[in-house]
């Protein structure tokens, strides 16, 4: 008799949105519980088992010394560690603050910074080996489901790493850059959302982070050509993935 894989769900420096997207699988949630055994999930369970886990879904980036210790313990006790969402991959929106001196950020918020133990927020991959990245802010629930199914079948998950442009083409959208000169991050952004923003009347802001091998420099040059101020170009590349090797330069590194 096969046993269900043991799953742990963890939250670090982030907003819990990825967990909420997982809960948006309402109609298959009960079926999910039939095939996986969630043994650790503080947001949902009071009795939690401290490992080991077959799959650990880690949401949130690392921004305190305690979190470094914790993520290393999780790595030790897990077969597969998944960077669940952009915060866990490269810090996401909270990483915008990495461009400000830490002391300046702390002094803005806290009268007494002596009790605050915080550091620049990085993805979990900065500290441990990561087996899979689920991209997105949040990653689409179908992506989460794809990953779970693939894990159960012991095959590689089909994760989209081509740009949002491909999804725009499938939806017959008019290209915002070429036809309307609107600065869209689609050409460098990982697909998986279904080109939701261009399909709903606005440019892509890049919330799924970089696609594989993006040409950020070329897109930045196009933005400049269509009249985007260089400060705004920098803002765009800093927003979700300014810490990544792919966007670092355009983010102002």
């Amino acid at each position: 008799m096969s046993t269900k894989p043991k799953v742990g769900i963890f939250k670090f420096t982030g907003c819990a949105g990825c967990q909420l997207e997982l809960l948006h699988l309402e109609d298959v949630f009960l079926k999910l519980l039939d095939v996986i055994d969630i043994t650790y999930w503080m947001m949902v369970k009071r009795d939690n088992i401290d490992g080991p886990w077959d799959i650990s879904l880690v949401e949130g980036g690392i921004s305190t010394p305690e979190e470094i210790e914790e993520i290393k313990q999780i790595r030790k006790k897990s077969k597969i560690v998944v960077a669940f969402g952009d915060c866990a991959i490269a810090g996401c929106i909270p990483s915008i603050r990495n461009w400000i001196p830490q002391m300046e950020a702390e002094n803005r918020v806290y009268p007494d910074t002596s009790t605050i133990h915080s550091m620049k927020v990085m993805g979990i991959g900065e500290y441990i080996k990561v087996d899979t990245e689920l991209r997105g802010c949040p990653p689409h629930r179908n992506t989460i489901l794809e990953f779970v199914k693939a894990s159960l079948l012991n095959i590689r998950p089909r994760l989209r790493q081509h740009p949002v442009c491909v999804e725009c083409k499938f939806r017959d959208n008019e290209c915002l850059i070429t036809s309307k000169k609107i600065p869209c991050m689609g050409p460098v952004t990982s697909a998986g959302c279904g080109a939701i923003c261009p399909s709903l009347g606005r440019e892509c802001e890049g919330c799924y982070g970089p696609m594989s091998n993006p040409n950020a420099a070329a897109l930045a040059a196009i933005f400049k050509e269509i009249g985007v101020h260089e400060d705004d170009i920098q803002r765009k590349f800093r927003k979700y993935a300014g810490m990544t090797a792919d966007f670092r330069k355009e983010a102002g590194h």
Binding site: F12, T13, S63, T64, E67, P94, I96, R97, W99, I100, E104, A105, E106, R108, V109, Y110, I116, S118, V121, D232, R235
Partner: peptide, 13 residues
């Protein structure tokens, strides 16, 4: 862990 929104929103649009 604090994320310092009130600090990093400064300078954004």
């Amino acid at each position: 862990p604090p994320r310092f929104f009130e600090a990093f929103l400064i300078g954004r649009r």
